[in-house]
């Protein structure tokens, strides 16, 4: 984390304030507001959390506590093509770990981080409910089933054309 403050887009901040208002600025709606905030900004940096805290009239520490508690919320921006590898048990016993290792090896980033060009990020998720296709990988909304270590580079190749 850098100490330089992010400058949030004013129109986005305005949108967030409206969201808070639509929930009557109630502290009990914190999680719902954070869901919307993440939709607007893509992630929840400290600056966004400060706005949320102010709008719902709760300490920033509480917002931070909630953001860091739930795995769905992220304080780091995800890649343009977020890669999620299912590490649920069904996928695990069918070789998800090897697939994950291959993604990490090729992209040279650990789980939870984004490539320096902002293109890919790697996260793990637990069970997408497509256990018949294990192991499963998602890139954005697209699901890839029965992925093998060989198949990893082919998946990444699909996103080559852009930039």
């Amino acid at each position: 984390m850098t100490s330089v403050k992010l400058k949030l887009k004013e129109s986005d901040v305005q949108k967030l304030k409206e969201v808070a208002k639509s929930f009557n600025n109630e502290a009990g709606e914190l999680i719902n507001v954070l869901h919307k905030a993440q939709e607007i900004f893509g992630y929840l940096p400290a600056e966004v959390q400060e706005v949320v805290a102010q709008e719902l009239n709760v300490p920033v520490a509480k917002v931070y506590g909630v953001v860091t508690f739930y795995s769905f919320f992220t304080m780091l921006p995800r890649g343009r093509y977020p890669i999620s590898i299912c590490t649920g048990t069904a996928c695990y016993v069918r070789g998800a770990e090897k697939v994950l290792d291959e993604f990490k090896r090729i992209l040279k980033i650990p789980v939870g981080e984004t490539t320096s060009d902002g293109k890919f990020s790697i996260t793990c998720l637990r069970c997408v409910g497509a256990c018949g296709l294990a192991p499963v990988v998602m890139v954005g909304d697209k699901t890839y089933g029965r992925v093998t270590t060989d198949g990893v580079k082919d998946i990444l190749k699909e996103y080559d054309t852009e930039d």
Partner: peptide
């Protein structure tokens, strides 16, 4: 409906 945010 209330939304969870990923916590077992």
């Amino acid at each position: 409906i209330r939304y969870g945010a990923g916590a077992f």
